[in-house]
């Protein structure tokens, strides 16, 4: 059913606009003066001020690869992350570890590991699916580049961002 909205009847003073105009001017000058004396909270001035210190523990930034305490690359090139990545940002080329390697029983390692940061949606599924705890989303959020190829993080870059992580998976260590 149609609702009829009763228009308010304005008196002469209200129809002359003046009270409304003066009221408006009063509101805006209040904001102006408050801002002038720095009493207004404003947006963070981003490149100078950063919110890094306020970032929560669970923040999902750029995905990175990590090495373990023996400086072994943890990734075993199982390609699970490549399969699960929704936007297909990850490309892995697996390789075989040579027999004389200390970690040869691991058998596989990623020869190439690229994450296209233009594609990545920071969903964290790669971190969740990884059986080796080799891939982690770190707190880097300002990933920039001038070309598309610059935005593809290769293995070197991923390790540089990821660094070393201790503990967690010990199954490849020598038996004590």
């Amino acid at each position: 059913m149609a609702t009829i909205v009763q228009r308010p009847k304005l008196n002469l003073l209200e129809r002359s606009y003046f009270p409304a105009i003066l009221g408006g001017l009063w509101i805006t000058i209040k904001h102006f003066i408050k801002m002038l004396f720095g009493q207004t909270k404003v947006t963070m001035q981003y490149p100078e001020q950063k919110w890094d210190s306020a970032m929560p523990e669970w923040y999902r930034g750029a995905p990175t690869l990590v090495k373990d305490e023996h400086n072994r690359e943890r990734c075993v090139a199982c390609q699970l992350c490549e399969f699960i990545c929704p936007p297909r940002a990850i490309t892995i080329k697996p390789g075989e570890l040579p027999g004389d390697n200390r970690w040869s029983k691991v058998e596989k390692y990623p020869e190439k590991f690229d994450i296209d940061m233009i594609r990545c949606i920071y969903c964290g599924l790669c971190e969740e699916v990884c059986p080796e705890q080799a891939i982690f989303l770190r707190k880097d959020y300002s990933i920039t580049g001038l070309t598309r190829s610059e935005m593809v993080h290769d293995k070197e870059k991923l390790y540089e961002l990821g660094g070393v992580m201790h503990g967690l998976v010990h199954k490849w260590n020598e038996k004590k």
Partner: peptide, 13 residues
């Protein structure tokens, strides 16, 4: 600047 201040922004800086 004035428009920014009135709208609680900082304006050109």
């Amino acid at each position: 600047k004035v428009s920014a201040f009135i709208q609680d922004r900082i304006g050109p800086n």
